[in-house]
């Protein structure tokens, strides 16, 4: 099949950047989107041009490294998918596709379709951890967790940190990512000791990075490759609310 690709090209953060249009003839339906770009890049290299830079690693939709916007939708038109697992059979001959990097102040552009997502790392480091005793391995199941809670925690733990939620948010907000991290640990007994500090620290870090403010559009949930639910955002709001207004000091024991 034949495709017209309009791709954002930008050498580095200081370059102004522009769209470049490419025609690609021999696209096979069994290719993934990234394999299709590999073919394009091979052609560019043979012509002595710069290949299109894009991020990728596992190509199995589990690492969260890949991602760009295809025709205005983060990770493309298939639900619960990453661009590495997006297959060319879901496109039509003659399609015109516009490829753009994640656009957010907090995700500065590195090159072409690659952005720097270390803002997520800094938020994670601010509070997305638990304190655990090291030393000999604890007995299995020494801390009991109700099944529903374990399942909810795992659902939120599915977040792969790809950044599509920010990219597809009209406000450029990172609430789904942060909500997923806070909800994941908040559902587990091991996450309780830091729960109050976590909400404060992660929200503060998120705002410091310059992400936008949530107005509940829900396009984050719709494009999240892992289907992370906006219930996580509500959980974050509640934890933050409690942490800021009702924590610290005497919690209701003796004066």
């Amino acid at each position: 099949m034949k495709l017209t690709l309009e791709i954002w090209r930008q050498k580095d953060a200081n370059d102004k950047g522009h769209f470049e249009t490419y025609e690609l003839d021999n696209v096979r339906s069994h290719m993934s989107f990234l394999e299709m770009l590999d073919v394009l890049n091979q052609e560019l290299i043979e012509k002595g041009e710069e290949p299109v830079a894009f991020d990728h690693d596992c190509r199995e939709a589990i690492c969260g490294t890949c991602g760009f916007v295809i025709n205005g939708v983060a990770h493309g038109h298939m639900k619960r998918n990453t661009v590495c697992q997006l297959h060319m059979r879901t496109f039509n001959d003659g399609d015109h596709l516009v490829l753009e990097p994640w656009r957010a102040k907090a995700f500065p552009l590195v090159r072409d379709l690659i952005v720097d997502r270390s803002a997520f790392e800094r938020i994670q480091r601010a509070g997305g951890y638990i304190s655990a005793r090291t030393g000999s391995a604890p007995d299995a199941n020494s801390i009991l967790i109700p099944k529903e809670q374990a399942e909810a925690a795992l659902d939120f733990a599915e977040c792969i940190g790809c950044g599509a939620c920010v990219a597809s948010c009209p406000n450029g907000a990172a609430m789904l990512f942060v909500g997923a991290r806070i909800a994941h640990l908040g559902f587990l007994p091991q996450g309780q000791p830091e729960r109050v500090e976590r909400a404060k620290a992660m929200v503060a870090a998120m705002e410091q990075e310059g992400f936008g403010a949530c107005t509940n559009y829900t396009s984050c949930e719709a494009t999240c490759p892992k289907g992370v639910s906006i219930v996580g955002i509500a959980k974050m709001n509640k934890d933050y609310f409690n942490a800021k207004l009702f924590s610290g000091g005497n919690l209701g024991g003796k004066e």
Partner: peptide
Amino acid sequence: VKYKVFNPPDV
């Protein structure tokens, strides 16, 4: 920097 094409779903 705005998107050239932006179609966030579910809005």
